[in-house]
Write a protein that binds this DNA or RNA. Structure first.
Ligand SMILES: [Zn+2]
Ligand SMILES: [Zn+2]
Ligand SMILES: [Zn+2]
Ligand SMILES: [Zn+2]
Lengths: 138, 138
DNA sequence: AGTTAGTTGAGACATTGTATCATTTAGGGT
DNA sequence: ACCCTAAATGATACAATGTCTCAACTAACT
């Protein structure tokens, strides 16, 4: 499984807390706030502590499995594998996922130029959703 | 000036607090945390309140002048006009700005397809910086 | 199974963000 | 230039979010 490999490769242990947090993000299918992660993860692990959720989210980010995203109402976390291309309304926060991506081929180019090992990317377009656009007319 | 136009267009007033917050972000040239914004902005407005900084940052985001970005140690804000293309190290948070962009031409396409009015975009590549890459080898 | 260092959970604590409200101020009308 | 009014501010109290410490627990190796 993805989680196990990523953790082991970086020298961390595979624990119940980490499994249940990753699972929460995976089944949610949308970005979650730390509080939401805690709530969801506790269904599979009632005694889970708040501090552990924060520690775990930070760890999963460092390991490359999870990505933090800002938004109205704080940072949210999602698996690095889903929803990395989207339209987001700067006014109301509405989001819309995109299918295709124009940035795919740049990884090698960037590795060569900067010595960076590129593993993924985030492409967000900011603007106004149809609703906010209409409302902003007058 | 950019700030004035954006605020007026959306029906908000142009105040000293808003000017000084925007100026802080502009002169910093890098993403700032709310606390840093407060400190910087107080140089030009000693009595500035903490609550006002939060209110103002949220407003400037809604108006499209400022973009929030997550990172190790919380959300940071920067002008929407600078540094929207970067490499960021998932492990240590190091960043590196990019010059060119493969996503420029998609705005009209997206407007047509989704009714979204695209005003800007953020393209971030995640991975390991040269240092973390080396350290992760063994 | 035994050993041990990484990890956890509880709770105190610190920081960050929000709500309330009296006071001030931007901006349009006169 | 002066009023007027609604918007905005700053102080303060409060709530939420995030961090630290430490004794107890457990994953992983032998
Ligand atoms: Zn919207
Ligand atoms: Zn892509
Ligand atoms: Zn790094
Ligand atoms: Zn671009």
């Amino acid at each position: 499984m993805q989680l196990e490999r990523q953790l082991r490769k970086a020298g961390f242990r595979v624990t119940r807390a980490r499994r249940v947090v990753a699972a929460a993000l995976a089944t949610a299918g949308r970005p979650l706030s730390p509080a939401e992660v805690l709530a969801a993860a506790r269904r599979g692990h009632p005694g889970l502590g708040r501090a552990t959720v924060y520690r775990t989210l930070n760890l999963l980010v460092r390991v490359g499995l999870v990505v933090p995203r800002p938004g109205p109402g704080g940072v949210r976390y999602s698996l690095a594998s889903e929803g990395m291309h989207r339209l987001v309304c700067r006014n109301c926060g509405a989001e819309r996922l995109l299918a295709d991506c124009p940035a795919g081929g740049l990884a090698e180019e960037l590795a060569r130029r900067y010595g960076f090992q590129v593993e993924g990317h985030l492409l967000e377009f900011y603007g106004l959703c149809p609703d906010c656009r209409r409302r902003a007319k007058p």
